[in-house]
């Protein structure tokens, strides 16, 4: 097990180097002169030259990359071209908002997904099962931004379909205020639903198929032959085995939320990393773009690593069978 962890850790090093090279090259992949693009239209030659000098764009690419990587390792990702503040500061102000959103979305999707998946599996081929699976299919195929816009229409703006009236308590829960630091959980409700719905659908389908597979196993028949009640057969004997592959999906989902909250954050005006990235792209603030992409990539790699290790650990007993 320790050997496996060490091997996986070593494997992430080339991945991270690759990611850093990719992120670094972002600057050169856009057409034209980066300094000119960043400085914006109508900037004087002098401004552009200053910017080029400041960012070291006159040096050869490998020197620039060397500088980029050595300071990145020390936690320095340069300064924002717009605000002049260190990229790291800009990111860390936004990072926890995205983490918070992702955690809530994960909790929501795990909670709904597990229950729906278990019920579906226990009642498979009944109307309940079919109903849940149709809903899950909806959840899976609905684009995030569309769901977000619908939710805003219905609940934030109060335009419920069929001319229904929204009860005051519901409005109270989902009303949105200007977002920022210390956002109350209320402002998170709609974005979390938007982000978590697809995840819940994936987890429900995964849990269902995994449960169905496990319920057909010989050891489930053994449990029944021992006189174990049907409830415990499901919760004690089947679920623990069935959850092993689901854990992987949950981990990957969380990683995906962290990196993929861009649209949701934009729609709901949440000042997370996704929003930061979009704004930076719009303002051609390349150091920020590089920084956010790098941080998201690193987190994604680390989450993957954790998922792999925990899967290996959980699966140890089954693997060797």
């Amino acid at each position: 097990m320790t050997k496996y962890i060490i091997r996986r850790l070593l494997q992430t090093i080339p991945v991270l180097i690759g990611v850093s090279i990719l992120v670094f090259s972002l600057m050169f992949l856009i057409p034209g002169d980066p300094a000119r693009v960043m400085a914006g239209e109508g900037a004087s030659e002098q401004t552009i030259e200053n910017l080029r000098e400041k960012l070291g764009l006159n040096d050869p690419a490998y020197v620039q990359y060397g500088r980029f990587i050595t300071s990145a390792v020390k936690g320095d990702l340069g300064n924002s071209v717009r605000s002049g503040r260190p990229v790291m500061d800009e990111i860390s102000a936004r990072f926890w908002i995205t983490v918070e959103l992702s955690i809530y979305a994960t909790i929501l999707s795990v909670f709904i997904g597990l229950i729906a998946g278990i019920v579906s599996a226990v009642r498979h081929y009944t109307l309940t099962d079919i109903f849940i699976m149709i809903i899950a299919l909806f959840g899976l195929s609905m684009p995030n931004f569309w769901l977000g816009l619908v939710l805003i229409q219905w609940f934030a703006l109060g335009n419920l379909p069929f001319g229904m009236d929204m009860p005051a308590w519901l409005f109270d829960i989902v009303q949105m205020r200007p977002s920022g630091w210390g956002e109350s959980w209320r402002q998170m409700v709609l974005p979390v639903i938007t982000l978590g719905t697809g995840g819940a659908a994936i987890i429900a389908r995964m849990t269902r198929s995994s449960m169905l597979e496990v319920i057909g196993q010989d050891y489930i028949r053994t449990a029944r032959a021992k006189g174990v009640s049907e409830r415990l057969v499901i919760y004690r004997h089947a679920l623990k085995n069935a959850l092993i592959p689901v854990v992987t999906v949950i981990g990957l989902e969380f990683g995906g939320f962290l990196g993929g909250a861009v649209l949701t954050e934009t729609i709901f005006a949440i000042n997370g990393m996704g929003r930061l990235t979009i704004d930076a792209i719009r303002q051609r603030d390349f150091p920020i773009v590089q920084g956010t992409v790098l941080v998201i990539s690193i987190i994604f790699v680390l989450v993957n690593l954790l998922v792999d290790i925990s899967y290996k650990f959980l699966n140890k007993r089954i693997d060797l069978n």
Partner: peptide, 17 residues
């Protein structure tokens, strides 16, 4: 499992892993 018990053909898969 109390008054009538059963054992199966597949010992490799009949125990919960």
């Amino acid at each position: 499992g109390n008054q009538i018990s059963m054992i199966f053909q597949e010992p490799m898969t009949s125990l919960n892993p």
